[in-house]
Design a protein around this nucleic acid. Structure first.
Lengths: 220, 220
DNA sequence: ACCTGAACACCGTTCAAGT
DNA sequence: ACCTGAACACCGTTCAAGT
């Protein structure tokens, strides 16, 4: 009788979509969207660039698959983890935190919103709204606002990261913007709330936005 | 007495930032973001690609300038035109309509949200909220939600355009997505509201979102 | 079937050379 | 100072050739 080798740890050399996506996520986490090229990714996997096309349609396809994988893990954990908040609010904050941790997802979500990752989130938001008791005929509009809020925050977040490289201080940036655009007058609102702007916390502000939207939904 | 030639129509040959931005906007309107390369733009202006760098920092700078110019004209017209709605609602719908007309602006706004075009819009929203009577300490959060809503819609809109090239029917796309992702279960919410999804009007939905947010703000 | 890696058709950006 | 356009250092994608 031949002995059964316990999980032979068989050489994970063979290329596959999941392996490629996994490697892509690692590179994206490390260096952002720009750091992921088919050449560097191929080198990372010890193969040729052309080989990737046997498992992945193209670059957009790969990025969408990476975002989908990450989104799924976030939506899972927010429904399982006891510590995190439940409901729509929990889902929204879970997405926000993911975007903060992995800014490249923000670019990806905002750049191609009909991709699986976004549809997945949209469906989850709608489901949570149903549980919340939002009337069926109001669910679509309600889910859309929340979706837009998440996408808007996503694009804002990623840009902040790019900005951080050149300008460390928000207030300094505001000043530079203000002085740079004197041709069309100044920014009265921004000037007035400059202090709030400097002190504000992105996460709290996002959550305040979610609460405003929920209040508007519940009033309906 | 030397005759005054009426507007000598002097050869507008000299390169300048405004001339470059203007030409860029034309090309963007015609073929979207991808259609704008420094080579084609230079050819369009009958000059060399390198010449552009004497007036424009780089490609991002050019796109930001184009978006800013377009945004300014929108914010002007929405405050002057008697026919269009006034207030925050008017500003929001004006932006939505611009994005519909020029999808490339959507990509630009969502891709680099701290640019002048966005700050301009943000300031305008805040100003309108003040006029509306929103308490000062609530204005920043309120302006942010509306801003995110606009940015989220922007990214969604542009992607829709790209999608239209391959998939004409929304419902068909939904079906394809649903069947393609059977590994994680189906999309219960999307399935349930599929009919609303097929019939809905993007503009009305965006406006419904604005109204939900405004209701949430006014409740505060 | 899967992989290789050179080749193709592009980019944005730079820079010596001209005017 | 402004412009030219070839050159540089990259891309994503394709494809003949190998196994």
């Amino acid at each position: 009788m031949p002995e059964k080798k316990p999980t032979p740890a068989r050489r994970s050399d063979a290329l596959s979509k999941v392996r490629i996506v996994q490697a892509a996520i690692e590179m994206l986490d490390e260096g952002g969207t720009d750091a992921l090229t088919f050449r560097t990714l191929a080198a990372h996997l010890s193969t040729g660039a052309g080989a990737l096309y046997h498992h992945v349609g193209n670059r957009d396809d790969l990025l969408a698959a990476a975002a989908k994988a990450v989104m799924e893990s976030v939506l899972e954990s927010s429904s399982e983890n006891e510590a995190t908040e439940q409901g729509v609010r929990g889902v929204m904050m879970g997405v926000f935190d993911m975007i903060t941790t992995r800014p490249w997802v923000a670019t990806q979500l905002a750049g191609a919103p009909w991709q699986p990752a976004v549809m997945h989130l949209f469906d989850r938001i709608g489901t949570e709204l149903d549980v919340r008791g939002v009337p069926e005929n109001a669910q679509f509009d309600a889910a859309s606002v929340l979706m837009y809020h998440a996408l808007g925050a996503a694009s804002q977040r990623d840009a902040g990261r790019q900005l951080a490289a050149t300008v460390t201080d928000r207030a300094a940036f505001l000043d530079s913007t203000r002085s740079a655009v004197t041709d069309t007058g100044d920014y009265p609102f921004l000037t007035r709330i400059a202090s709030q702007f400097a002190e504000h916390d992105d996460r709290e502000q996002f959550q305040a936005g979610v609460d405003i939207i929920l209040a508007g939904i519940d009033r309906g």
